[in-house]
Design a binder for these strands. Structure first.
Length: 262
DNA sequence: TACTCATGAGCAA
DNA sequence: TGCTCCTGAGTAG
């Protein structure tokens, strides 16, 4: 389930399991030829910005991974399992194997390329920022845009780590119509979106699933109860009982409540 | 077995 | 806006 919370969880797991260790890296599928560049190297640390994960093996030896819509990680304890299906990359130390399937990006880059990628990424609600500069960057970017807020939240240059589920849920929680242009948002609404993103993504990191209903933030109630509007088209809104609407916006499914989000 | 769908994003037009 | 790529799960027949 690759929105930002998943990627941060995986980066944390990599730091715990593989940080400071020499990794065996290969590509059973054969489509990750750069595996040889990092095979036998020590992992200094893993980091995440939005939906991108970076494995730092050296100043100029960074593995960039983006799961895209289908990418998945699986961790195995004990003896490395037999390869089943399309495994793009495998990372292993004695007793632990991490398998990567279906990523959009899995490439080795140097510090220059890393700087280019990083510069393109908007503020990440999961990266701590005590002075509030990240919020200011997000707010400034939204305020100067006439694009609908529903599209801006999906733009990783505006805010990184938000995907289709969080987009729909955060706007519902803020009672903001997704068609409202960014420039029309009030400072209070921008603050609400940012603060809620910080809170919800952190909850996502803890649970590993996207829970957005306050009454369930401490415990996963199961798929059917987790969210307010996502994948609930035609069903009554949990607050106002109006039917949840599904529209296609920029090729993606956009869910909202026409009653609560006027 | 065949088809559809999905939490993403780059690119051309 | 539409097309493309990546992979596996779920469903229809």
């Amino acid at each position: 389930m690759p929105e930002g919370h998943t990627v941060h969880r995986i980066a944390n797991e990599f730091n715990e399991l593989f940080g400071g260790k020499v990794l065996r890296v290969d590509s059973p599928q054969g489509r990750f030829a750069d595996a040889r560049l990092v095979n036998g190297q020590k992992l200094i640390r893993a980091s995440a910005v939005g939906k991108q994960m970076f494995l730092h093996f050296g100043e100029d030896l960074v593995l960039r991974i983006h799961l895209g819509i289908y990418g998945k990680w699986q961790f195995h304890r004990g003896v490395a399992p037999e390869v089943i299906g399309q495994v793009r990359a495998r990372f292993a130390i004695k007793g632990i194997t991490a398998e990567l399937r279906g990523p959009t990006v899995c490439e080795v880059i140097d510090s220059t390329a890393l700087a280019v990628v990083s510069k393109r990424l908007g503020p990440d609600p999961l990266n701590p920022d005590p002075v509030g500069a990240e919020f200011e960057r997000f707010a400034a970017r939204v305020k100067k845009s006439s694009t609908a807020i529903g599209l801006l939240l999906m733009n990783q240059e505006v805010i990184s780590g938000i995907g289709n589920v969080y987009r729909a849920e955060i706007l519902f929680r803020a009672r903001i119509n997704p068609h409202l242009p960014g420039a029309a948002l009030k400072p209070k609404q921008l603050r609400a979106i940012w603060d809620d993103s910080v809170m919800l993504l952190n909850v996502g990191v803890v649970h590993g699933v996207m829970i957005t209903r306050d009454e369930f933030l401490a415990e996963d109630p199961g798929k059917a109860e987790r969210n307010w509007v996502y994948k609930r088209e035609g069903q009554p809104c949990r607050k106002c009982r109006k039917k949840i609407v599904l529209e296609i916006a920029a090729g993606r499914k956009l869910y909202f409540c026409p009653g609560c989000q006027r």
